[in-house]
């Protein structure tokens, strides 16, 4: 089932591209871009959803509301849901596209591995899933050599007896760039920031390590995919290059003020509908003073 619906079509598409461009390395890059293009509506939806969520999370009023009802989970959830509804944010909006994309990514990975068959047994299995309209005899053998790489082997650029894992280094760098420019703006002391920071350190190392260990074909896919994602993110105007290049002017956040307008009335309305059962969080003198201060226009 999985083979027939995902792996087989992907493998045949990859073989078809290889047959057309006569170069497996270029075929992997084109195939990755093609898949990115096909899944663009999903990715775009996911990015937009996560952006809206980020904006909301950074909104001072929203934060204030959350802070106010910190001890009351029910109330917090209710306010959240109301705001989500008002602002048209789907809290699962970023999960669903990811879930849909996951089989595609796994299928892509498996099909690249299939096409890089290097033993007779793997070739038997590859031959078996090639569609009849593709003459396997014309397609095979696949030229695994691309630039200095053997795509079926872990990549090294040999200078004398020293093998430099160029692709693994590039994968590490692009994964870092990708994580960095996509990192949501968070406060330095919250849990989200800690998670985001550790993920930003772990992900590039893990991807780089996999690119170092795996065959070059797969590392090439990682690299093409990373670059495509960065370009896609930049095209949507969300890439904050100042996080990578300090001399670039930062597009500091947000539009957040526009996300939630003065919701004091709503807040009160919600509070009235659902009075706090035990303790009512009273605003502190400091926050009251803050409230009374005139709003500064940016």
């Amino acid at each position: 089932m999985w083979e027939t619906i995902i792996v087989q079509p992907f493998t045949n598409l990859l073989l078809l591209i290889t047959m057309l461009v006569k170069n497996f390395g270029i075929a992997i890059i084109l195939f990755t871009l093609l898949i990115k293009l096909i899944t663009y509506p999903l990715t775009s939806k996911q990015l937009k959803s996560s952006m809206a969520m980020q904006d909301l999370q950074n909104d001072p009023k929203y934060k204030k509301m959350m802070e106010k009802y910190k001890g009351d989970r029910e109330k917090t959830a209710e306010i959240q849901m109301k705001v989500y509804k008002e602002k048209g944010v789907n809290p699962f909006g970023s999960c669903l596209p990811t879930l849909i994309q996951l089989p595609i990514i796994i299928g892509l990975y498996q099909s690249i591995m299939r096409v890089m068959a290097s033993t007779p047994l793997e070739l038997v299995k590859l031959e078996r899933i090639v569609y009849p309209f593709l003459d396997v005899n014309k397609i095979l053998p696949i030229q695994n050599h691309f630039l200095w790489m053997d795509l079926g082997q872990p990549e090294r650029l040999w200078i004398g007896n020293i093998g430099i894992p160029v692709l693994a280094i590039l994968v590490l760098i692009t994964t870092y760039i990708q994580s960095k420019i996509m990192q949501p703006p968070t406060q330095s002391n919250d849990q989200g920031a800690a998670m985001s920071n550790s993920m930003m350190m772990m992900m590039p190392v893990m991807m780089g390590w996999m690119a170092y260990q795996f065959s070059a074909g797969l590392a090439l896919y990682f690299l093409a995919s990373n670059i495509a994602t960065v370009v896609q993110y930049a095209a949507m105007g969300r890439a904050d290059w100042a996080k990578i290049f300090p001399w670039v002017e930062s597009k500091e956040q947000p539009k957040t003020a526009a996300v939630i307008e003065d919701d004091d009335e709503d807040e009160e309305e919600i509070a009235e509908e659902h009075p706090q059962p035990v303790k009512t969080v009273k605003p502190s003198a400091r926050s009251l003073a803050k409230r009374q201060r005139p709003k500064r226009k940016k």
């Binding site: 990975y109 498996q110 591995m113 290097s118 033993t119 007779p120 047994l121 793997e122 299995k125 082997q153 872990p154 849990q191 800690a194 998670m195 550790s198 993920m199 772990m202 992900m203 893990m206 390590w209 996999m210 260990q213 795996f214 065959s215 797969l218």
Partner: peptide, 28 residues
């Protein structure tokens, strides 16, 4: 949460490595 995330990442790496580490090939 950070610990959970790290464990997840390591697990994902281990699974992927199992699928396609450089020296692994299917043969007789």
């Amino acid at each position: 949460k950070v610990i959970k995330l790290m464990v997840l990442l390591v697990l994902a790496g281990a699974i992927l490595t199992g699928c396609a580490a450089g020296v692994r090939a299917e043969s007789t």
